[in-house]
Design a binder for these strands. Sequence first.
DNA 1: CTGAAAGCGCTAACAT
DNA 2: ATGTTAGCGCTTTCAG
Lengths: 343, 343
Amino acid sequence: MGERRVTMADVARSAGVSPTTASFVLSGRTDMRISENARLKVQQAAGRLGYRPNVTARSLRTKSTQTIGLVSDSLTTTPFAGEVIRGALEAARDVEHLLFITETGGDRAAESGLVNALLDRQVDAVIYAAMYTREVTPPAELNGQRVVLLNCLAPGLDAPSVIPDEYEAGRTAGRALLAAGHRLGIWAIGGHQALPATPDGVFAGNERMAGLRQVLDEAGTAVAGVVECDWDPEDGYREVSALLASGEAPRALICSTDRIAFGAYQALHDAGRSVPGDVSVVSFDDQDIASWQRPALSTIALPHYELGRRAVELLMDSAPLAPRTHRVPMPLRERASIGPPRP
Amino acid sequence: MGERRVTMADVARSAGVSPTTASFVLSGRTDMRISENARLKVQQAAGRLGYRPNVTARSLRTKSTQTIGLVSDSLTTTPFAGEVIRGALEAARDVEHLLFITETGGDRAAESGLVNALLDRQVDAVIYAAMYTREVTPPAELNGQRVVLLNCLAPGLDAPSVIPDEYEAGRTAGRALLAAGHRLGIWAIGGHQALPATPDGVFAGNERMAGLRQVLDEAGTAVAGVVECDWDPEDGYREVSALLASGEAPRALICSTDRIAFGAYQALHDAGRSVPGDVSVVSFDDQDIASWQRPALSTIALPHYELGRRAVELLMDSAPLAPRTHRVPMPLRERASIGPPRP
DNA sequence: CTGAAAGCGCTAACAT
DNA sequence: ATGTTAGCGCTTTCAG
C-alpha cells in the first residue's frame, strides 16, 4: 500500500538517460532521432519498474485528457437505452478514450452543474443526449465546446445531431404491412402522441406517421384510423380494447412502442382475436419483450448502439463538426406477428 | 472559440492579490486568515471573469481527481441494471465526484487494459461490478487500490463487497406464500440453476433456495419440487408446461426471475389455469414487465439502485475499507399474483 | 542524437 | 494577513 507510483523521472534515472529522452521513447514519437540503444534502455527500465504514464499530468501540457463527457436526462434509467452507452463505450475504447457518464434526471438546474463538472475536468468533448428524440436547449456552458447531440436537435447550437431515422422507419412499417398484402383496416395505435401534454405530437410520432402516410399513399391506400394515446402498455390495452369494442374490424396494428404492443396483445387476446391470423401487429423499439411475446413481435428497432457509437465517432473525427443531422437507419426485426390479412 | 480558459493567476492579478490568497479564498479554506476585503475582491474578480477551477491541474498537487472508475462485465447491457449506475451516479454527485464508466463485455484481457486506463487517469477509487452475483478474480492491478466490489465476491482481494441479500429474499418469497395460506404444491422454477454449465448452481439460486427451505421448514412444510433450468422466458414456458402436463397440480410457483415468470404465465394460460386463482406466482428481479403482466406480478426486487449507491458511499466513507460483505435488502413488491390456495 | 530548463494550473511550505 | 517559491509529472522548445 501507499506505494508511490513510478514516474517517468524514475524510468529516466534507472535507464541512465534524461527525462527528455525517456519522454520521447515512451510516447513513441519519431520526429526526434533517438539511438536504438537509448530506446532499448528506456523501454527495459519502464518494463522493469512497471511504469505507467500519468495521463492527467500529461494533459496539463497537451490539453488533451483522452476523455469524453456524456450528459443525458435519463439514459441509464431507460432499460433498453443502455445500448447507447455501450455503443459510445466501445467507440471510445477504439480511440483510447474514457467516458464520464452523468445524468440530470431532467433537472435543468443540475444540467449546468454537471456540464461544468465535466468541463472542469477538461474533457476533450461532450455528448449531450436525450432519452427520447426531441428538441432541446443545452446549457450555455456548452457553446464553443466540441459537442454532438445524441437523439436530440438543438436549433440554437452549432453542433451535429445523431438521431434515428424515424421517417424512414414509418415507411418501413408501412412497407412491411403492404408486403404481407394489407391495404385496409390498418390502424396506428399511439400515432403522433398528440395529447394535451404534447399537442403537436412528439418527433418520433410525427416523423413515423409522415413516412407511413407517404408509403401507403404511394400504394394507393391509407390508414383506417389513428389513435392518439400515451405510449405505455396500459394505454395500448385500453385503446385497442375500445377499438375492438367499437365495432371496427382492424386487420393490422402499427403500435408506436413495443410497450403499446404488449398491451395490444393482451387486448386482442381478451377479445379472442389471434395474432397474426386475425390481426397483424408491428411496432417500434425492439425491446427484449418483443422477442418474448408469443407470437414473437415484429418491430422496428431503435438503433441505440449505433447512435452511441456514431456520436463518439463524429467527436473523434478530425473533420470539423458541421451542424448537420445524421440519421441512423432503424432496421425491421421480422418475427411472427405479421401475416396476410384474413380474406 | 479558442478562448483560453481563465486561470487562477488571472483572477489573482485582476483582484490585485497573490495567487496564494486567490487559491485560499477560491478553495474556501478557513485554516488561513484572509481579510474580508481580500476575500471579496477575489470572489468578485472570479465572478466577473467567469473563473472555473481546473480540476486536473489541482489534482496534480492534491492527488485527488474527484473521480471514480466503474468497471463491469456488462452492466449497461443488462436492461434493468442501469439502476446501479444511476445509484452510483447520484451518490457520486452528492460528494462532487464524477464517474468513469467502462465495460469489458466479459473479456478478461480487456479488463486489465480498462483498469489501467482508469488508474492512469488517477481515479480516486474503483468499483468492480458484475452483472449477476458471483465470485470473481479482479485483475492484479487493483491490488492496493481503494476498491469496492459490487454484486460480486473476490476471496483474494482485500475489499468490501456490496451484494443483494438473496438468502433473506428466499425467506421473503416463502413467507409471502405462507402468509397467503400456501403449504402444499409449492414449486421452485429455476431453482439453483444447477445445470451442466453451472453444476453447483449460481450464488443467487443457492442462497434463495436455502432461505426458502429454511422458512418453509420453520412452518413445518417444504417445497413440492424444484425444477432446475435456465432463467429465461422460454425455459419458464417449457418447464411449467411440462410440469402441468406431468399431472402434478402446483398451487404456487416461485420463479427465479421475472423472465421465467413471463414464460410461466404463458404456460399457465395455455393450460387454462388462472393466476392467482388456480396458481399463485411470485418471482425475483422486479423488471418493468412485472408490473405490466396481468395480473401484475408480485416479485422480490433486486436492489440495483441501492447497490450502486452503497458502493459509492463506502468508497467515499473516510473509514478504512474492511473486507466485509454488505448485504442489501431485497424488498417484496406486492402485486396481484399471489392469492390463497384453491381449497 | 541528447540534455537543461521552462512551464501547464494549481497548492502548500515557508517567509515576511 | 499575504506574498514568494517550489514543486506535482509530464512535454517541449532550445542548446549543445
